[in-house]
């Protein structure tokens, strides 16, 4: 892409597009900063003062909020770490090792891409009930680890690395595991970052499975917890509180985005290209 100059028309269109994306976010933030009573009379009040942090105060006073935040962090980080580890190992194996039924297994991995969560949620629920894993971190993390996408993605990435490197390392006396861990894995960092960010975001925003699996509020993730709080107090706490919850729940995502901006842009750019 030519980074130097954009044609004026493209620039205008991009700005319009950007504005369309940002407007709802700004609106949400403004609503979250208004008192609920005022919004009850007129939602247009969002665009004028006075602004207040009372809705955020109310969230932070909810005694479970930090627990849910912690749960979300544990589940999302656990899922991300697990997905990266398993996808890397499986990707290396599919790309580089010779083992029986490799092709057949890879076809199964690809088929996995086509199976939606909805199709398996009932048996999955039964299975976890039988294992006694509902309302536990493993119960929330394990289903996220079996995604096909990561395996497929890492397999493709490993396939793209020159075999010369494996061979040079073999001549340097490296074992197969050392070739994986010391030579190839460090070269997959860009892919790890991309997969990691997407997995983290997906896990953080997950709603359905945590809603089903976690039934005691001390195991709620932030999405489920905030939703449950809202269901309980919808009449008394109005629009402003709801919007403050939305902003609060997105904050970690925004932080991740700011930290990994480059990887995310690269990943999406790469996918489009």
């Amino acid at each position: 892409m030519n980074r130097d100059r954009m044609p004026p028309l493209a620039l205008v269109l991009t700005l319009v597009g950007a504005a369309a994306m940002v407007a709802p976010l700004v609106w949400t933030v403004l609503l979250s900063l208004k008192s609920n009573a005022e919004l009850l009379q007129d939602t247009g009040a969002a665009f004028r003062g006075p602004y207040t942090l009372e809705n955020y105060g109310a969230i932070l006073k909810g005694d479970m909020v930090f627990r849910w935040l912690l749960n979300s962090l544990i589940v999302s980080l656990g899922t991300t770490a697990g997905v990266l580890a398993l996808s890397s190992l499986a990707g290396f194996a599919f790309a580089r090792l010779d083992f029986p039924f490799r092709r057949t297994l890879f076809v199964f991995v690809l088929l996995g891409l086509a199976i939606p969560e909805q199709a398996v949620i009932l048996p999955q629920h039964r299975l976890f009930a039988w294992l006694g894993l509902h309302n536990s971190y493993p119960g929330l993390i394990l289903p996220g680890l079996v995604g096909s996408f990561g395996v497929f993605f890492m397999t493709q990435y490993f396939r793209g690395l020159p075999r010369d490197l494996d061979e040079a390392a073999a001549l340097d006396g490296a074992s197969t595991f050392q070739i994986f861990a010391r030579v190839l894995l460090p070269l997959t960092v860009p892919a790890q970052a991309t997969l990691g960010v997407f997995t983290f975001l997906g896990s953080w925003n997950a709603y359905w499975w945590p809603l089903i699996s976690a039934t005691t509020s001390d195991r709620f993730t932030l999405t489920v917890g905030l939703a449950s709080a809202q269901a309980n107090y919808a009449q008394t706490n109005g629009l402003g509180y709801l919007m403050a919850q939305a902003v609060f729940a997105s904050l970690p995502i925004l932080i991740v985005y700011v930290l990994f901006q480059r990887q995310i842009v690269n990943a999406i750019g790469g996918a489009v290209k």
Partner: peptide, 28 residues
């Protein structure tokens, strides 16, 4: 390969991109 007492120079070099020159030479 590593136990044969041979060293190979590859056509496309096959240097380890994430290691320094020193690291490349020291790896084996």
């Amino acid at each position: 390969p590593g136990d044969r007492g041979v060293a190979m120079v590859f056509q496309h070099y096959a240097l380890y991109p994430h290691m320094t020159v020193r690291g490349n030479m020291a790896f084996g």
